[in-house]
């Protein structure tokens, strides 16, 4: 039981993390490196003559292979971590509530994880390009964790509650951190073009959605398969 859960999450995390890293290198990291040009002052936006124009174009992945290897490695760690938590919650839902689990229903679990862990926090704290000054880290981390917990519990109440009133409570719980508000600076400070920041935020969320769908599918697939064996 324990071994099956841990190994399922590990295999799923490695697969989803590897695919997510690959997608990031194609879609996300080039924008991130372009943002760094503005962060480091190699490119300037809106500064020299007040013109709103600056050149578009990513510098490409470059040759910092050590840096990119670390990105792959930490994606594997992150997705394995999320896989362990997702697998644990799937197992608990099945044992305590009798929720049937299949590889396909795992995709729904994964997408719910995406909503709780990526989308809901991003509503308040959009994914940031390097060089985007933001409020102090501590309060943002607290808000980020609290939003994930509220959203996850809210989704669980909506998915598994028998009474309508409990589902409404779930919905309110999901809204709560946004009514409270994420920590932000009282000035706009970004040095990168807003289009670049927006593209980065949207595309990193899109790729994370794929990563989470895969994570849910494979966590459930290995969990179920391990029990049949």
């Amino acid at each position: 039981m324990t071994k099956n859960l841990l190994s399922s999450a590990l295999f799923a995390g490695l697969i989803a993390g590897a695919v997510a890293a690959l997608l990031q290198f194609v879609f996300v990291i080039p924008l991130l490196l372009e943002g760094e040009l503005f962060e480091g002052g190699e490119r300037l936006h809106f500064v020299i003559d007040g013109s709103p124009q600056s050149d578009r174009g990513s510098p490409g992945l470059g040759t910092e292979w050590g840096r990119h290897a670390m990105t792959v490695a930490f994606n594997l760690v992150t997705y394995t971590g999320y896989g362990l938590i997702l697998g644990a919650i799937m197992s608990m839902a099945r044992e305590m509530r009798g929720i049937a689990l299949t590889a396909k229903s795992g995709i729904i679990w994964g997408l719910a994880g995406f909503v709780a862990v990526q989308l809901a926090p991003a509503v308040g704290l959009p994914p940031e390009l390097p060089g985007t000054p933001a409020a102090e880290l501590g309060p943002r981390q607290v808000w980020w964790v609290a939003t994930i917990l509220c959203t996850a519990v809210g989704l669980a109440l909506i998915a598994f509650a028998d009474k309508g009133i409990v589902q409404i409570v779930g919905g309110v719980l999901i809204l709560l951190p946004h009514l409270f508000g994420a920590p932000h600076l009282d000035t706009y400070f970004g040095v990168a073009p807003p289009e670049l920041s927006a593209e980065f935020a949207a595309i990193s969320l899109g790729m994370a959605a794929i990563g989470w769908a895969l994570l849910g599918y494979f966590t459930a697939y290995f969990l179920v398969r391990g029990e049949e064996a």
């Binding site: 039981m1 324990t2 859960l5 841990l6 999450a9 930490f74 760690v77 992150t78 394995t80 971590g81 999320y82 896989g83 362990l84 938590i85 697998g87 644990a88 919650i89 197992s91 608990m92 044992e95 305590m96 981390q141």
Partner: peptide, 25 residues
């Protein structure tokens, strides 16, 4: 079996949070 399942889940949750603390926080 529910108890051992719960223990396994708690263990997985703990390791998961530890990994995310390293990779993200």
């Amino acid at each position: 079996s529910v108890r051992s399942g719960l223990a396994a889940s708690i263990l997985a949750l703990t390791i998961g949070v530890a990994l995310l603390t390293v990779s993200g926080m």
